[in-house]
Design a protein around this nucleic acid. Structure first.
Length: 467
RNA sequence: GGUGCGGUGGCGGAGAGGCUACGCUGCGGCCUGCAAAGCCGUCUACACCGGUUCGAAUCCGGUCCGCACCUCCA
């Protein structure tokens, strides 16, 4: 088995060749915890989770680190506004983030470092960069001097000159060069900060990832992941910092492969706070089953923009209903245990090809179509394949009856419903179809849909469409 | 202004020189007292204009359109 992966550094799909096949190391830029996680955060999380699962099919030892940014100006602002210490905010939203991701069936990273736990390491990095003449002190700030790193722009494929022209951002007067970025900045006394050789202050945004990736994984490591919007400047600056520590120019001496997931759009527009179209995972989980959200997130290729809307969720819901139905009346259901060996080879092959989830789902659909033309024995094996393949993708983990809402025992009108169904079935036996239809429409009005099977009548709540 | 990514059937969405992607919806049929579910079948797709080629949705050139990034972003 061999994984092909699109490397942003090369702008093409290439074979994944590990640095050490006995120790695969992946780092992903995690969220800044000052608010609820949105669908964009979830996409990065889910895509990385799947990447790790695929890597683990091939390699025995995979370490996945994904950080938490818990010191940042947005957090400080939120803390000031709410008049609470920043920890109150970061702890709260870190917990919610992990809960929400867990709900989506995402495994927690092996290591989840927090920026504030690596301040010492960051200070050491800054000292080294100053010593190497890649950084300078100006106006109580320590700045990275971009012209000192000749490979700058190698990831985003921009030359230094191009970035400056047209830049809409005011350049701080204490910068030697417009593209220079902050490694360390002063904090006011009432702001969070740490003592450093350059006074009381706090780290710049990019520094934390250089410190944590090196501390947790060692350099160079195999894959650096994150949202495509982080390519510039965040990842570019990380490369500049980390490579400059050892006066290296080759970005692959920091991380070999750069793995970026595409944006999530909402009704064709970028999800952003100013447009007010942010979709929060926490809110979505109240309205939709987690597998519906999960399937929606993997229904398009990870590098393509994903257009998020109600229609997508409804389609995923319909797809899952169909998938679950194949297990509904299967008395062997309990025998289907998740087993890696049962996963369809074609699905694995699709995933090994740069994580082609839409193709994997197409294969799954084909397998389900094949069921109708199979003998019992063969269909049992096929169902095992479908089951394990689905669970690998993070779906079909629920009980089919429960998923489809069949015969919900918690329903308020349980006795009433079952009474009416019995009445209707008696009417049917007596060929009193007018009465039978009458009762069915009464049930429909109660929000209950019935389904006559060979030997029994099952019912479920009608899915509301007002989500 | 610069850079990057895209434009595939009613919709979603793969593919990347010759082979049905797949799903949803619609339509026709089977099944069913009727429904529901299921099954079978089915519907002018590759933005436009040139070029290369025996053959282009796929490669090359140009045009148009969309989106993103250019120090807040997943």
């Amino acid at each position: 088995m061999e994984l092909k992966i699109f490397n942003t550094l090369d702008r093409k799909k290439i074979d994944f060749v590990p640095i050490d096949k006995n120790n695969i190391r992946v780092y992903a830029c995690g969220p800044t915890v000052y608010d609820y996680a949105h669908v964009g955060n979830a996409r990065m999380s889910i895509v990385c989770d799947l990447l790790i699962k695929v890597l683990r099919l091939i390699y025995d030892n995979v370490t996945y680190t994904s950080n938490i940014t818990d010191i940042d100006d947005k957090i400080i602002l939120a803390a000031k506004t709410q008049n609470v210490p920043i920890e109150k905010i970061t702890n709260k939203f870190l917990k919610i983030y992990n809960q929400d991701m867990h709900s989506l069936g995402i495994n927690k990273p092996d290591i989840q470092p927090r920026a504030t736990e690596y301040i010492e390491e960051m200070i050491i990095l800054v000292e080294k960069l100053i010593k190497n003449k890649n950084a300078y002190l100006s106006n109580n700030h320590v700045l990275f001097h971009v012209p000192s790193f000749s490979s700058y722009g190698c990831l985003s494929k921009r030359s230094k000159e191009e970035q400056i022209s047209g830049s809409r951002v005011e350049v701080a007067p204490y910068k030697k060069y417009a593209g220079d970025f902050v490694l360390w900045k002063p904090s006011k006394q009432n702001e969070p900060g740490w003592n450093s050789p350059w006074g009381y202050g706090r780290p710049g945004w990019h520094l934390e990832c250089s410190a944590m990736s090196e501390s947790c994984l060692g350099l160079p490591f195999d894959i650096h992941a994150g949202g495509i919007d982080l390519t510039f400047p965040h990842h570019e600056n990380e490369i500049a910092q980390s490579c400059s520590l050892n006066n290296e120019k080759d970005p692959k001496l920091f991380a070999r492969y750069w793995f970026h997931n595409g944006f999530v759009l909402f009704n064709g527009e970028k999800m952003s706070k100013s447009l007010g179209n942010i979709q929060l995972v926490n809110e979505l989980l109240k309205k939709y089953p987690s597998e519906t959200i999960r399937l929606s997130l993997i229904s398009s290729h990870y590098r393509q923009p994903l257009n998020w809307n109600k229609n997508l969720l409804q389609q995923s819901q319909a797809t899952l209903n169909r998938f679950y139905r194949i297990f509904l009346n299967d008395e062997n259901f309990d025998e289907y245990k998740y087993d890696i060996k049962d996963i369809s080879d074609d699905i694995i092959e699709s995933l090994l090809d740069d994580l082609n989830t839409p193709k994997a789902l197409a294969v799954l659909n084909k397998l389900i179509n094949d069921l109708s033309s199979k003998s019992n024995i063969k269909s049992k094996n096929l169902k095992k394949t479908i089951y394990s393949s689905s669970v690998f993708l993070g779906i079909l983990k629920k009980n089919p009856s429960e998923w489809l809402g069949i015969g919900n025992k918690n329903s308020k009108n349980l006795n009433n419903i079952e009474e009416l169904i019995e009445k209707r079935n008696n009417a049917r036996i007596n060929k009193n179809f007018a009465l039978a239809d009458d009762i069915r429409s009464k049930l429909n009005k109660m929000g209950i849909e019935i389904e006559d099977q060979n030997d029994r009548t099952i019912w479920r709540k009608i899915e509301k469409d007002n989500k």
